[in-house]
Design a protein around this nucleic acid. Structure first.
Lengths: 210, 210
DNA sequence: GTCTATATAGTGATAGAC
DNA sequence: GTCTATCACTATATAGAC
């Protein structure tokens, strides 16, 4: 757990990194500040000295991750290529990003599903932000443009988003089951993800054919 | 919480029903036997009298739910219609079943993701059962048959299953966010699910066109 | 900044009275 | 079958020494 790159960091930073790893693996409820301290190699009091409450420590980590994820999505939407190439590269980016961080979807989802407070917070801080509403409207405009040019079936923008999200996110959420139930090695899992990326891309694009 | 239909039931049964509701809403870790007892209106000792351990109580409920879900899937696979009609009715059945029980996907998934022991148990009790392997092989045979007749694109059976699962399950997992973040009423949510059912069916079938 | 010690509360589980 | 009482444990959080 304690690796070389950590030794010169501040305690505050080390606590945060260990906490993040444990929250990712186990979720909020199943992770205690005692366990965080044990894995850092300090006392439990120190965790509270820096972050006061467990909730506070978690919120900082959580919001940082959500923000990073939303930025990946936002960047993918600002794309000047043809709509088909834009979709290809967006899906590819989502898969590649999540391969680096396969636990992220479940981490974000778990708290969002089981904690209404987090949904409220997300709505106030992101959904209501004009920047995000603007991005959605730009996407919708592109979809309408494609449809009027007869290059795309009459599918709603929201449905495209939901289908892409479903197919991408579920791939990573179900990964522990794929690995365990089918007894796969790391390399087999990697190949499987790359395979799903291709198939998801194919399915989504085929679904938009007129 | 306590409704009329419960008054004449045995305590054992009432405990089980209340426990199921709480486990569904909050998950295993966040639900205590004390809370179960409080909502039943009995003492915490009684919960342990009937079920001995919290883990034991949970396992009974969990396995019953998983088994019921797998039976819905198994029944949908025994279908004599054309492959396209079979897929239509399977997806329709999954959506209709989950509309009655929208929390089921997250309930099953949460434990499978966060508890390796449950995955092991599932593998031993279901994945290894010849009955399920047999169902999968029958499905694969039908897919191959369609493909050789030139009526279906060369898509792997496993990919079809994963895509259907992704699009169906994610619809229900993301429901709390859809409702809260977009501030929807119950009726709007119901319409949304029915709409997704149609769109998922369309997408999957279009994805199988040669 | 980091520690020890502790307050306070909640947990799962069991023993024993009725 | 249902209760009261209690055990051993763990949790979060804080006070105060160094």
């Amino acid at each position: 757990m304690v690796n070389e790159s950590m030794v010169n960091e501040s305690m505050e930073q080390r606590i945060r990194e260990v906490a993040q790893e444990l929250f990712f693996r186990q979720g909020y409820a199943a992770t205690s500040t005692t366990q965080i301290a044990r894995e850092v190699g300090c006392t439990q009091a120190l965790v509270h000295y820096y972050y006061r409450t467990k909730e506070n420590l978690f919120r900082q980590i959580y919001l940082e991750q959500v923000e990073a994820a939303l930025n990946v999505i936002a960047r993918s939407l600002a794309n000047e290529q043809s709509f088909e190439d834009f979709l290809r590269s967006a899906i590819s980016t989502y898969f590649d990003t999540l391969m680096q961080n396969p636990r992220l979807p479940y981490f974000v989802l778990e708290e969002l599903v089981s904690n209404p407070e987090r949904r409220r917070y997300l709505r106030e801080n992101f959904v209501k932000k004009p920047a995000y509403a603007c991005l959605y409207m730009q996407l919708e405009a592109r979809v309408r443009h494609e449809q009027q040019a007869g290059r795309m079936a009459r599918v709603e923008t929201f449905d495209i988003m939901m289908s892409v999200a479903s197919l991408t996110v579920f791939t990573f959420i179900s990964l522990p089951m794929y690995r365990d139930l089918l007894a796969q090695t790391d390399e087999q899992v990697r190949q499987y993800i790359l395979h799903r990326k291709e198939e998801v891309t194919r399915l989504v694009l085929q679904g938009l054919r007129p």
